[in-house]
Design a binder for these strands. Structure first.
Lengths: 159, 159
DNA sequence: ATGTGTAATGTTATACTATAACATGTGGAA
DNA sequence: TTCCACATGTTATAGTATAACATTACACAT
């Protein structure tokens, strides 16, 4: 499983996520159509954030569509249903690593290799809740993104 | 002072921020030129995030420039020197409310009225630091944005 | 089997956000 | 004066996202 920046069984990781998405769609009466499923697969292939137009160019080579609305609609679906997240700092998208769980995701984004790791933190959620409450603010969504250098790239830089 | 969504002496608030920016520029040998100063003023006028092209259209009516690089350069300067922040979720910019202090700012963004309130939280900073450290990740920048409903708009919605 | 409604997709056009690249001005230091 | 660093002017273009309307596909009621 993808914990931090450590190695994991990525094939299993992808399969688990796809299976989970299928199950959730079946439960909720949602349609995981060909394009939507393929976009989710592409996002799962690497723990990187992909730009909408990167995804679109792949879809295009596969005959699944060539115009921007194709990919944005698929991304909207995936994001709305918790299968993917938008990384605001990068204007890019990343598969969700903890589908099904309600979450205030935290992303660690490596500036060098573009790796994106998603973590969840209940304490943080509580903490922001307290902060917001003190200001009388009602939280609907949170964007928490940490940009920096991942362990691998830190080592590479010190060589 | 702007604490949460409460009323404050906004004239003083603006003056303080401008004076602080001038002082900081003098200390550091930075030039707070006409355009840069005006953009900062515009950002300070309201506790809202302004889009680059909104700012540009004002600059244009004032004869300060009409092309995108004018405003983006000014914004780059202000952000680089801590006088303003980019709100990633909105692709918009907001004056910094705590200039001079090192910070991992937290923004509360009202989805309805676009008000943006900036807070600072050492505990949060520490918390993210701990999270990142556990993953071996080196933090360079953080983006923390809470989207929701401010006290005023919550009241308006329940009418 | 036929209509009917909903959701998804196809298609064209355009809006919005941001930067590259190169030219020009400006003010201080050698 | 000459040079240099920095700021600004200007043109063009790249990158991100959505509006609007047409068409298809399928479930399901008649």
């Amino acid at each position: 499983m993808p914990i931090g920046f450590e190695q994991h069984d990525h094939t299993t990781c992808i399969q688990t996520a796809l299976t989970s998405a299928e199950a959730h769609c079946a439960d909720e009466g949602l349609q995981l159509t060909k394009v939507r499923r393929r976009v989710l697969e592409l996002l799962l292939l690497e723990h990187k954030a992909l730009g909408a137009y990167d995804i679109l160019s792949t879809l295009n080579t596969e005959g699944l569509g060539s115009q921007p609305p194709i990919v944005y609609r698929a991304l909207d679906f995936l994001v709305a249903n918790g299968f993917a997240h938008k990384i605001e700092k990068l204007n890019a998208y990343s598969a969700c690593c903890h589908p099904g769980k309600s979450h205030a995701p935290v992303f660690m984004i490596c500036r060098t290799c573009q790796a994106v790791v998603e973590t969840q933190t209940e304490p943080l959620r509580n903490f922001l809740g307290t902060t917001a409450k003190a200001a009388g603010f009602l939280i609907e969504r949170t964007v928490i993104e940490i940009e920096g250098s991942c362990p691998t790239c830190q080592k590479a830089e010190t060589l």
